[in-house]
Write a protein that binds this DNA or RNA. Structure first.
Lengths: 116, 116
DNA sequence: GTGGTATATAACCACTAGGTTAGATAACCT
DNA sequence: AGGTTATCTAACCTAGTGGTTATATACCAC
């Protein structure tokens, strides 16, 4: 039960059911019933998944009569994307070539600097 | 215990100790002992974290005498970044403006189409 | 009110996760 | 060989997760 933001987000995303729910919400708000429809599990199970998503700040819930429509809240996903991006140079070959290029530039500058 | 790739990756990342280990590995390979140093936990605990990272494909382990140096394997992080990017339009305001713009273009085209 | 629908809570179960300590393995160094 | 170092495995504990069923709560419609 980690308390830091990123851990909570990653934990919430580490379940295919919850990611499917997020995907569904990209097409607009939905009630719990609608969100349950694609799954074989019972209502309470979906309810628990929604609570996990809500506590992670990935969804918001409104009240309309007897429905609690859920909407997507993508802010934590931005953090995830930014976190992953910091590792780009370890998977992106062209980034590595750029990296090498910048290293060479630096090396050249050191050479010139030494000369003066 | 989800079997799909992305769930395993997210689960592995949902722990601050493991993310710290990955961060450490961006500066180069390291032994288990070196990776343990910053943490108050015992060796076996770190060993378990490393096994989780290894099974998620986030690190690779070599053998050098009595050491098992770990190196970063960033491929799964690329998948994470790409997955998160599919939600960009839900957090990026400028992307939304672009989205609106494209919608308007489409609307115009429909208008022209109707005219012909 | 009664009945039906939507959702949440409670209690329970099996399993997993993160931690511990103690012991096993393996390679180095005299 | 004996001792030290690095690492993993085993057994255990506590707490959390994902699911269930059964029960409550809230709202609408009649």
């Amino acid at each position: 039960m980690p308390v830091d933001h990123l851990s909570t987000t990653f934990a919430a995303l580490a379940d295919p059911t919850r990611r499917a729910i997020l995907a569904r919400l990209t097409t607009g708000a939905a009630t719990v019933k609608e969100l349950s429809a694609p799954f074989k599990m019972t209502g309470p199970a979906v309810s628990k998944h929604l609570r996990v998503l809500e506590r992670a700040g990935l969804i918001a819930r409104g009240r309309e009569a007897q429905w609690r429509p859920c909407t997507l809240e993508a802010a934590p996903l931005k953090e995830v994307a930014e976190w992953a991006e910091t590792y780009r140079r370890f998977w992106d070959a062209s980034y590595n070539r750029l990296d090498d290029y910048l290293q060479q530039l630096k090396a050249k500058e050191r050479k010139h600097g030494r000369r003066k």
